[in-house]
């Protein structure tokens, strides 16, 4: 971490400024997440954490007014939402959407199919075998394959389902937007286990959270504190504990000083 990160193996966000409805949310945001590392972003509500997640995924409501984002050296912002996904960017949603009538299995299968070259078909038997194994890891009942995507799922089930999709899509970079919200401690452990099983030298994680709790289970390499559209402090995993203890007011006071 002391050496310069390799741009061709990193998610690099440089001087990123973003507006929504004419209001500036990200104000020259800088962050580099090399593959193999887990970075956590903490901060109070309204500082732009979720905006960052949505912008990385390419949500059309947000306007990038400056800066750039490179994923392994490739201009992420020039790509459409689905291109980014297929190129390896995954976002675990804070509020996953429901898709009535579309089974979970069909949805994930369609997403996998979208990554294959034209004319190539998924091997259905191997696909189900793989999915059932991953569902077992996440302690999801097999019946979830046949249920409509997120429809009638509890908060915890929705989050598990996000992690299942992440596992099945094998992204290069995964952004987890408040994945801990709405989870009880048991579900949190299961979800964290799923994420940890995906940690690898070929994958980078950006874990966005309001609370330290999640970071006891997904132990980050670096913790960043976000304030008013920028990162204002970075440190090791102990920074999260310090924040938990002293609260965000502490950061505010430090900034004012």
């Amino acid at each position: 971490m002391t050496s310069e990160p390799d741009i061709s193996r990193s998610l690099v966000i440089k001087d990123l400024s973003v507006e929504i409805d004419g209001r500036e949310i990200l104000k020259g945001f800088n962050l580099t997440v090399p593959k193999g590392e887990v970075h956590a972003i903490m901060g109070p509500n309204g500082t732009g954490k979720s905006t960052l997640a949505k912008v990385l995924a390419g949500h059309e409501d947000y306007t990038v007014t400056g800066g750039q984002v490179l994923m392994d050296g490739i201009d992420l912002l020039a790509m459409s939402v689905d291109e980014r996904s297929r190129a390896g960017m995954f976002l675990a949603f804070q509020y996953p959407n429901e898709i009535p009538g579309v089974s979970n299995a069909n949805f994930i299968r369609a997403a996998r199919q979208a990554r294959l070259p034209d004319g190539e078909e998924i091997d259905a038997v191997a696909f189900y075998k793989e999915m059932y194994a991953k569902m077992a890891e996440l302690e999801m009942d097999k019946s979830f394959t046949g249920r409509s995507v997120n429809e009638g799922f509890s908060g915890g089930e929705k989050k598990r389902n996000e992690i299942l999709q992440m596992m099945m899509l094998d992204p290069k970079y995964a952004v987890l937007d408040e994945t801990d919200s709405g989870l009880d401690i048991d579900a949190l452990k299961v979800v964290a286990q799923g994420v940890n099983s995906l940690r690898s030298k070929d994958r980078g994680f950006l874990v966005i959270t309001h609370y330290q709790r999640l970071l006891s289970y997904i132990v980050p390499d670096i913790v960043h504190v976000m304030w008013d559209g920028r990162i204002v402090r970075s440190g090791g995993k102990d920074l999260a504990l310090e924040l938990e203890e002293k609260g965000y007011e502490w950061v505010k006071e430090e900034l004012a000083a």
Binding site: V81, S85, F90, F93, V102, N106, I108, A110, A114
Partner: peptide, 17 residues
């Protein structure tokens, strides 16, 4: 948007819906 984030084109997302 959710479906596209999983890699489906806009057309594919609509027809799946």
């Amino acid at each position: 948007f959710y479906m596209q984030q999983r890699g489906l084109s806009e057309g594919e997302a609509m027809s799946l819906s």
